[in-house]
Write a protein that binds this DNA or RNA. Structure first.
Length: 202
DNA sequence: CACCAGGCCCTAT
DNA sequence: ATAGGGCATGGT
């Protein structure tokens, strides 16, 4: 499995955050919050539209968990409209921001919750499935959970790495295949899979 | 104009 | 357990 990572790395070069925050290794609290917000906006959406929505939130000064939580629902909907499914996503953003900002007491507190427990709590929220939970854990909280998305499934299918496409099995395939739990490796590997799947890639 | 894009939930078999 | 429909926009 590590050989596959090296192959992709040689092919595409090191992920540099050319297309999003997701491979920039967000450091500041604000950058982490942005990643968390993007994890919802990107659900079944094209990345360009996510950028439009993020830009609107930023211009309106609402690009933060507390701001989202206290924003008027109708305004929030208007800002994120370009990302699609905006009514559902505004609800999901409210739920998620409330959970982290209020129930956890902020990002710094949330990050100290044992990762498996935090994952369970995220999954219990309406609108957060396995991929979104792992996006948050891996990219915002730097916890080693391999993200399985549509691009990953396509690659596994193409290379015939597995005949079982359930989320858990695929996650196990990558995590056990790599041996070590290394969040930076997981981030880069997944970023490379996405880069490879984007356009010519195949 | 048709089709697609880095999910998730709900409902009906 | 698993399949199918709904949610919505902007780009090609």
């Amino acid at each position: 499995m590590y050989a596959l990572y090296e192959t992709l790395l040689k092919k595409h070069g090191k992920p540099q955050g050319q297309w999003s925050l997701w491979c920039k290794r967000p450091k500041t609290k604000s950058e982490k919050e942005t990643v968390i917000i993007e994890s919802i906006l990107t659900q079944r959406a094209n990345w360009n539209n996510v950028c439009l929505a993020v830009s609107n939130l930023k211009d309106a000064g609402v690009l933060g968990l507390k701001q989202i939580f206290s924003a008027e629902e109708e305004k929030l909907q208007r800002h994120i409209r370009p990302s699609g499914f905006y009514k559902i996503k505004s609800q999901r953003l409210k739920i998620l921001s409330g959970f982290i900002a209020k129930e956890c007491g902020g990002i710094d507190k949330a990050i100290k919750i044992p990762a498996p427990l935090l994952r369970e709590k995220l999954l219990s929220l309406n609108g957060i499935g396995e991929e979104t939970a792992d996006d948050i854990l891996l990219y915002a909280f730097e916890k080693p959970f391999f993200v399985i998305d549509e691009y990953t499934r396509r690659l596994v299918k193409k290379l015939e790495l597995s005949d079982n496409f359930s989320y858990g099995r695929l996650q196990e395939l990558f995590e056990k295949g790599l041996g070590k739990k290394d969040y930076a490796l997981y981030q880069d590997f997944h970023a490379l899979i996405v880069m490879g799947g984007k356009k010519d890639g195949k």
